[in-house]
């Protein structure tokens, strides 16, 4: 089951996460996003969260890990459309103080 779509347009790499972002779900997603960042060197990495059905600290670890990799490469990260539950975890971890959260109408 595919739980990631990558899209590169302009200078933005968008990683659309879908389904369960638990330890099982993030395993394949992590390297795919990292590979695309290294290959494409975008200006911005946008992580789209509206399709996430479940998230726990493994998903938070995925976000933080990508943020660290991106920062090393000089890539800006933003999070897009987290559900209220996902946002609650993001705030609990303090990720909202490091990474910009963008919300748009569906």
């Amino acid at each position: 089951m595919e739980n990631l779509i990558l899209d590169f347009s302009g200078d933005t790499l968008t990683a659309v996460l879908m389904g369960d972002m638990d330890h099982h779900g993030v395993a394949g997603v992590r390297t795919q996003i990292d590979d695309a960042m290294f290959r494409l060197m975008p200006k911005i990495l946008c992580i789209e969260l509206s399709g996430v059905e479940f998230m726990d600290s493994s998903g938070l670890g995925l976000i933080l890990g990508r943020y660290q990799k991106a920062s090393d490469l000089g890539i800006e990260v933003m999070l897009s459309n987290p559900s209220p539950r996902t946002e609650r975890l993001i705030v609990m971890t303090g990720i909202d103080k490091m990474i910009k959260i963008k919300k748009k109408e569906a």
Binding site: S57, L60, G61, L64, L89, M92
Partner: peptide, 9 residues
């Protein structure tokens, strides 16, 4: 990529 938030959650 563990973030140490499991027990806190």
């Amino acid at each position: 990529d563990r973030c140490g938030m499991g027990f806190s959650i």
